[in-house]
Simulated scan of single mutants.
Amino acid sequence: MSKVYLIKIANKEYILKINHIDFIKEFYKQKYLSGRCKFIRIPKVYNIAVKNNKAIALMEFIPHQKNKLRLNEILDVIYEFHKETENVQSNIFITYDFNAFYKELVMIRTYLPPILKSQTKKQLKEFFAEIFDSKYSIIHGDFHEDQIIKNKNYYLIDFISSFYGPKILDYAYIFKYDKKIKKQVLICSAGEKKIPNKEMVSKFLKSLVIILISDIFWCVNRRKYEHKSFATQILKANRAINRNMAAIIDTISN
C-alpha cells in the first residue's frame, strides 16, 4: 500500500514515502515519536502533504548497511522503545484495550476458528484480562528485523500499525508463527528477570492469539486497497490460533 523512494534535494538524500490518504496518520505518528524518542531514534519527518488522494511525506534518510541483528538486539530495541513511550499522551495513537480488540474481533468473527466464535464477550474479556490489564506503551505493531536500522544508533521505522496498548503485543508480533517460544522472549515480555513459569507461557500464548486475530482483521481491511483475497494468510493465521489455543489449554491443565 506504500511506495518508498530515495531522492536527492540539493545533493542531500531523503526518503519520499507515499500512502493512501486513509493512512496519513502514519506520518504524524512518526513525526511525534521522532521528537520524543532519544535512545531508539526515529527518522525525522520534514514535510507532510496531500495530493490526488495520496498522503506524501519527506523524511530523513538514515545511511546504513544491511546487517543481521541478533535476537537480543531486537528485544533490547523493543524494551527501550517501550520504556520511552510508556506515558504517551496523544490522540494520534488509538488505545488498543479490550473494547478496541473486541470491536475488531466482531467484524471478522466469521473468519475465526470455532473455539473463538463460540465465546461470549464476557468470556473473552475474562480470558484475555491478563493481557489488557498489563503495562501499556506505544506498540509498533509490525515489529520485525527490517523495521530496525542500525548504524551508530538504532532507528525504528514504519508506524502504519502503531497504537497505544499492552507491551507484550510487540513481542508476540515477532514470534506469532513460531512453534516454540524462546526463553529470553518470555523473560523480556514479562518485563522482569525471572525463571519462566506456566503462567508466563500461557500469557504469551494469549498475546499471540490477539496478534493473529488482529492480523486477520488487517487482511480483511486491506481488501479495500488491494485486489487480493488474502485467503492464504487468513488460513495460516487460523491454524496458528488453533495451535496456540490448544497449547494454552495444555499449559493450564498441566
Rank of each mutant, 00 (worst) to 15 (best):
N99K: 15
A55G: 03
Q184S: 11
V50P: 03
M1K: 14
D158F: 10
V209W: 01
I15S: 07
T85C: 04
D142R: 06
E130N: 12
I157S: 05
N52G: 07
Y79D: 14
L212M: 03
Y14W: 09
Q119E: 12
K25T: 15
V45M: 04
K8G: 04
Y136W: 05
Y155S: 10
E60Q: 13
Q184V: 09
I48A: 15
D215H: 05
A129V: 06
N153M: 08
S118A: 00
N242H: 02
D142A: 03
E130A: 00
T120N: 08
K8F: 05
Y154F: 15
I74V: 15
A129N: 11
L69H: 14
K203L: 05
R36K: 11
I48Q: 14
K176L: 06
P114H: 00
K68D: 05
K12L: 06
L169Y: 08
S207C: 06
H140D: 01
I74P: 05
T232K: 13
E80P: 04
C37K: 03
S90V: 00
E126Q: 11
A237I: 03
H140T: 07
M200E: 03
I241E: 02
S34P: 03
I108L: 09
D158R: 13
K152R: 11
A10Q: 13
K51R: 15
K29R: 15
E86C: 09
K224Y: 00
I48K: 13
V45F: 10
I108C: 05
F101G: 11
A55Y: 05
I210P: 03
F159W: 14
Y28D: 04
K31E: 14
P113L: 11
I7S: 07
Y154T: 09
H144T: 00
L205Y: 02
K152E: 09
P113A: 13
Y173Q: 06
F27S: 02
I234W: 01
L58F: 14
I62F: 08
Q147P: 07
K44V: 01
K179N: 10
H140S: 09
D250V: 05
Q233T: 01
I92F: 13
A57R: 06
R109T: 10
I131T: 06
A172L: 04
F132C: 01
I234D: 01
L6R: 14
I160N: 11
G165L: 11
Y28A: 02
I187P: 04
C219S: 02
A246R: 12
L16E: 13
D142G: 12
N221V: 00
N197G: 13
N11W: 05
K12V: 10
K29S: 11
Y46P: 12
N53G: 14
N244L: 01
I15R: 04
R222H: 00
F81I: 14
I234N: 00
E130L: 05
Q30K: 04
G191R: 07
A190F: 08
I211F: 00
A240D: 08
K180D: 03
N11D: 15
F81Q: 14
N221A: 12
K150L: 13
K31W: 09
S162F: 04
L69P: 10
A100W: 08
Y79M: 11
K125Y: 05
L169P: 14
S161C: 11
L156W: 09
L71E: 10
